[in-house]
């Protein structure tokens, strides 16, 4: 489903330079939100900055596509709503595991993947989250 990042690809090279997942942050009321927009949906302030997120969260809900809709997305693949640890939710894919193993509430961590000419934040099972003593950093998880 995801195209492996090839070392010789310029897009793949830039995947390695992605700083991390960011959300919009309202400078007036502190609301964190996704997708990034020019105004805060709570207080309508237009003073909007960015905040780096942990890139970790859990699967709020998901579906396994079994029917093909598009040649670039051969089934099966997992489309999910990810509830990020800091609050915002986003639509993405769960990768790096069998689709049948995905569960609501499953801990996931972001993994940037090149798809076409874009770099997308996808999510894979968060191995570190299963082990509270883990000393792995977010960055290490992102590079799995």
């Amino acid at each position: 489903m995801t195209r492996p990042a090839r070392p010789e690809s310029p897009v793949a090279a830039s995947v390695e330079t992605v700083a991390g997942l960011e959300a919009a942050a309202c400078r007036a009321c502190g609301k964190l939100f996704l997708p990034v927009a020019p105004v805060c949906p709570d207080c309508w302030s237009n003073r909007i900055g960015r905040r780096r997120l942990s890139g970790r969260g859990e699967v709020a809900t998901f579906t396994i596509y079994r029917q093909a809709y598009d040649a670039d997305f051969p089934p099966p693949y997992v489309l999910a709503v990810i509830a990020l640890r800091e609050g915002p939710r986003m639509v993405s894919n769960v990768i790096g595991c069998a689709p049948e193993s995905v569960r609501v509430g499953m801990k996931v961590a972001v993994r940037f993947v090149a798809r076409g000419d874009r770099i997308l934040p996808l999510f894979a099972p968060d191995v570190g989250a299963a082990d509270p003593d883990s000393t792995r950093t977010d960055e290490e998880n992102q590079r799995d």
Binding site: T61, V91, N93, V104, G105
Partner: peptide
């Protein structure tokens, strides 16, 4: 759609899965 989000069925499947969970 960049994540393969197509059609109406997948969207409602997300609600169905929530209801089940």
């Amino acid at each position: 759609a960049a994540f393969g989000f197509f059609g109406a069925t997948g969207l409602h499947a997300l609600a169905a899965r929530r209801h089940m969970a």
